[in-house]
Design a protein around this nucleic acid. Structure first.
Lengths: 347, 347
DNA sequence: CTGAAAGCGCTTACAG
DNA sequence: CTGAAAGCGCTTACAG
């Protein structure tokens, strides 16, 4: 097999196929697009020429000329394509996109608003048919321009800030409330809270759910037990160490996000307290069944989030012009072990 | 804020900017592309008009006309965007692509050769500047056409079949050999092998490494201890149960892929043998430090695989026409606990 | 320094 | 049933 040679010979075009089959490019276009009303004889000749030249239609040129201008692509902005939550969302979106003959650009924003803007611009420059966004930072108003210019946008996991738009999220307040209520039911009163960056809407809501559950139980929130703005597992680890050193240390902890849960589990383990301190975490954890004791978690319907966001986006792209749609999915508490460790007020 | 209204007003073009600023579209093009030699006065007027209209250049039209025809996009074919190995690879590729101003289409092949072909066609139809592929099935010869037509292709994780092409892989034979040698050194002689689908090249190589380590130690491979073609965690679980029921059961197991390792860990745990049977797995596992006992693993340099594949692809796209490049990265054995459980011949 | 004409690969809107 | 002309939004190749 001869390799390379003239590295970038350019691809055959309809013109080449037309020349080889002795018809006009319009006829080639008809055959390639399966338009009816071409004589069987020409269909045959064109098909054969296309096969011989290994012709592949240039969809990018096609969409430039077509009325609707569809590129059959969408852009997906994730926190980080490599994290499990993001990548599960990605897969769910991909599956719906595939049903529509659409392929997906994905990119990582890393909780950096300037990357969100840059990726959005890059996707729009390639004229994606729509955007699905896990927003970060405190201002998504600039997406209004994209939508007004004909690019629909659906937010997922978190609602946008300063913008009336479509979104699909989990009921974070309720999930956090259920987590804390579960710990209360197992005899805990002093329950620590470990939270993500307070600029993130999900973190705000989960903190609200924590406070709501405590106040319903008639317990005042002790600010000393609340640690927010933890950006990494390591910070969560340190926060747990710190909580455990308190004279009146918490007997249970609610960790409001997966990286935080991981840091907390490591800290409890290294202190030898993994069977002594109650814990409920928000978000699924991989291989949680192999951890001992098993971890009690509030899990989101990630596939549901992704599928619904994508379905809504394609509806918008097809002309759906209802007012902004807001969908809230229920989380589920999955009993694992750490959430059932009994506290001092049990029984 | 008024929402929606005329849903898909189309985007402003250079023509609109030209009209508003009273210049030709050629001048708008010069300003938008930062070409030198435009009077400051016009630069100012065009910039202002573009800002006012919220003009965003259509890169897709631009690339159609440009000489090189670059779309500043690449396509990435993964086993499944949601699995941790794939998504880490994705992130590494994304990071290199970003340095080149290129965005990434990603898609899941699910070990299905027909999906590989369909995704490749979809990417090529959008004229990606190159393809990075984790190949599946037994024939990648059709990629030769794409390369000959000017679309470079780099394979990663597995070499392609029936095609001379660029690839970047881990030294799987060596990794498997090290895993089994490690178990031998800890006193095991009867070592089980659990492997992925035998059509996958990595599975073939890892099995070869297993055999190689045993024969170097003068131990004959017992076919009863070898279980191949395990496609899921569940099948691996069943295979371990089966091995453990043997009268002369293995005292250690080498699991040649992450899903298989997970199934094996679950089976050992449910049999209460997680501290009795030695185990070394291939591929990293999330949260492995929280599992007890810790799992000994042979891990790949996933970021290295992704970065090198992407770097090679961009070199090809820039005209590098050396013969096919083959890069082999060394895996690393990470001691965790299960690999150090002593066998009957220890000490 | 600026712009009119042509063309990238395709589809639209006609005419025959 | 088939094709010549025009145009999608841009850039190239010229001319002034």
């Amino acid at each position: 097999m001869t390799v390379e040679g003239s590295a970038s010979r350019s691809r055959p075009t309809m013109k080449d196929v037309a020349a080889l089959s002795g018809v006009s490019i319009k006829t080639v276009s008809r055959v390639v697009n399966d338009e009816p009303g071409v004589s069987p004889d020409l269909v045959e000749r064109v098909t054969e020429a296309a096969r011989k030249l290994d012709y592949q239609r240039n969809l990018t040129a096609s969409s430039l000329r077509r009325g609707d201008g569809r590129t059959q692509t969408i852009g997906l902005l994730l926190e980080n394509v490599a994290n499990p939550f993001s990548s599960s969302l990605h897969r769910a979106v991909e599956d719906v996109a595939r049903e529509h003959g659409v392929i997906v650009f994905a990119g990582s924003v890393d909780e950096d608003p300037s990357k969100e803007r840059a990726l959005t611009a890059a996707f729009v420059a390639r004229r994606v048919d729509g955007l699905i966004v896990v927003p970060t930072g405190s201002d998504q108003s600039y997406f209004a321009k994209e939508r007004d210019n004909g690019t629909p946008v659906v937010f997922v996991d978190r609602p946008p800030s300063l913008l009336d738009a479509d979104w699909v999220v989990t009921d974070n307040i309720r999930g956090a409330d259920e987590a804390v209520t579960h710990l209360l039911a197992h005899g805990h009163r002093r329950i620590g809270y470990l939270g993500d960056l307070s600029t993130i809407r999900t973190a705000i809501d989960r903190h609200a759910g924590y406070s709501q559950a405590l106040s319903r139980a008639g317990i005042a929130v002790d600010p000393a037990l609340v640690r927010r703005d933890l950006g990494t597992s390591e910070e969560a680890y340190a926060a747990v160490e710190d909580l455990l050193r308190m004279p009146d240390a918490p007997t249970a902890i609610f960790t409001s996000q997966n990286l935080i849960t991981i840091g907390a589990l490591r800290a409890l383990r290294s202190a030898g307290l993994q069977r002594a301190v109650g814990l409920v975490g928000f978000d699924a954890l991989p291989l949680v069944d192999l951890i001992d004791p098993g971890v009690t978690l509030v899990v989101q319907d990630v596939v549901g989030l992704g599928r619904r966001a994508a379905t809504l986006l394609f509806a918008r792209a097809a002309g759906d012009d209802r007012p902004s749609q807001h969908q809230v999915l229920a989380p589920a508490l999955v009993v694992g072990g750490t959430g059932e460790i009994l506290g001092p007020y049990a029984g």
